[in-house]
């Protein structure tokens, strides 16, 4: 099953913390800009479900979903 990340493009300001801190290097910033003008993260690799991106997301814009479940 594995895990995936959900990004709320309304809240993301493209700071890149999630991309830089992801130990699995599973994220990249998108080439396209969000409606608010930011480059949002997109999942490009396998998410290990450590939730580092969630904890360090300063804009409450990321949720990690593992086996259909969000954060406990």
């Amino acid at each position: 099953m594995g895990c995936s990340i959900v990004v709320d493009s309304r809240l993301c300001k493209g700071c890149g913390i999630c991309v830089e801190l992801c130990p699995a290097r599973a994220l990249e910033l998108s080439k396209e800009l969000s409606p608010s003008g930011y480059r949002n993260p997109v999942q490009t690799g396998k998410c290990v479900g450590c939730r580092t991106c969630e904890m360090f997301c300063p804009d409450f814009a990321i949720a990690v979903v593992c086996n259909g479940k969000g954060s406990a």
Binding site: D8, P58, D59, F60, A63, G70
Partner: peptide, 21 residues
């Protein structure tokens, strides 16, 4: 799915007023 902090926040005032990062 929503970020875990969202249940404690006022949705109507998001995004935050803070600088990116």
């Amino acid at each position: 799915a929503k970020h875990f902090s969202r249940k404690y926040l006022r949705e109507e005032v998001l995004p935050t007023p803070f600088c990116p990062g």
